[in-house]
Design a protein around this nucleic acid. Structure first.
Lengths: 208, 208
DNA sequence: TGAGTGCAAGTTCAAATGAACACAATGGTA
DNA sequence: TACCATTGTGTTCATTTGAACTTGCACTCA
């Protein structure tokens, strides 16, 4: 699809974006490859754009969008708790951020994506551990069997959403924890789309 | 630390970088905030740089480096198999890439980081599932209890590294699988540092 | 043989862009 | 009071930078 030279140009642009954080100008590319004319670079950029390996913001400096940028990193805020609904998700309650490329997350474009740090082992049978970071999406279409973050007694907890005989309830994936049948409304805050676990260096026990 | 306006400017720069992939020019920032003069923006950028919230490439267009870029995303290659040792980890065997910020991974600076897609349920009791992506590091200091990728019978498998009476062996975290005591040498390819799970939308079964 | 494509050089332009300097108002602090 | 940081305007300058047009060579394909 690409010629040797074209691939070289694209890789140089990408490596500069990754290492320096900025896109090289056409002259900078020119000098790196030792071209006598800047026009050569323009032609390569034309070819790369035509073949779909590059997007360009016309007449803007250093404005080449390569797959490095395209696989947009979503900078997801990590919350400790979501006490009073999504409205209170302010900057203050953010514990940190996590970055993932969009392919790694099952996230759709619509919903807002956020993350929670898991407390406790109530979802251990779903293989979600204490300390895991779960990526959730503020979505409307919750389905039977989805793992969700819900507001119960003023606290956000992670549970499996199950409907039985048309009535929804929340199921813990640990026999030690009871199921939760909502008395009134059920406030779903997000649906699990992805999970990130930072492995601890020296595990104390093999199983819980 | 930052004034309201300064934070607003920084957030605008970051949101443009995230959404459009390119850093706004000083004039673009000016027009977004309705300033009559471009100098105002220059002053804010000065302040942000002085306070350490921004890095600047002098005299280069659209060359502001914000924390969005700083938390360098490590573009980790995902391999399906590592048959014949690290030497054969060529571009061809790469299944894809995954991006994580360096904080999310336990990765040290020394070792090379790579990823494997997990096949099978031999590590189910360590809560590692079929289809999970495990992030590993090519490290020398393997410790008792670490989960490692090792080469066994020409195939890469994920197992727990256990030493007993001074002799190392590989333990599957599933009673259905046998332990593996190496006859000769043990080829450790990487130590588990992190894990990413892409949640499937509609789970068919709750447990294996 | 002619058309098309990739590659490279030379030249010139206009716009985009970072930067500098002068001036001024405000609010807090030493 | 004097000093300083913050905020804002107005103006000007020198580069930087993308872009356009031309010419030339080599190679492939019809």
């Amino acid at each position: 699809m690409l010629t040797e030279r074209q691939r070289g140009i694209l890789e140089f642009i990408q490596s500069e974006q990754r290492e320096k954080g900025i896109t090289p100008s056409t002259r900078e590319i020119q000098h790196h490859f030792g071209f006598a004319s800047q026009t050569s670079v323009m032609q390569y950029i034309d070819a790369l754009e035509r073949k779909g390996f590059l997007d360009r913001h016309a007449r803007k400096a250093r404005a080449l969008i390569t797959p490095v940028q395209k696989v947009r990193i979503t900078d997801i805020p990590i919350y400790g708790q979501i006490p009073a609904g999504m409205a209170t998700l302010t900057e203050q309650t953010i514990e940190g951020h996590i970055s993932l490329d969009t392919r790694s997350v099952n996230a759709s474009k619509n919903g807002r994506t956020f993350a929670l740090r898991v407390h406790g082992d109530s979802m251990i049978d779903a293989h979600i551990l204490d300390g895991d970071i779960v990526i959730l999406e503020d979505r409307k279409d919750v389905q039977n069997g989805d793992i969700v973050a819900a507001l119960i007694d003023g606290e956000t907890t992670l549970k499996r959403y199950v409907t039985e005989h048309g009535r929804p309830y929340l199921k813990a994936e640990n026999p030690l924890y009871p199921n939760l049948v909502p008395a009134r409304e059920l406030r779903i805050q997000g649906v699990l789309v992805s999970l990130v676990r930072k492995q601890i260096a020296a595990p104390r026990r093999k199983r819980g």
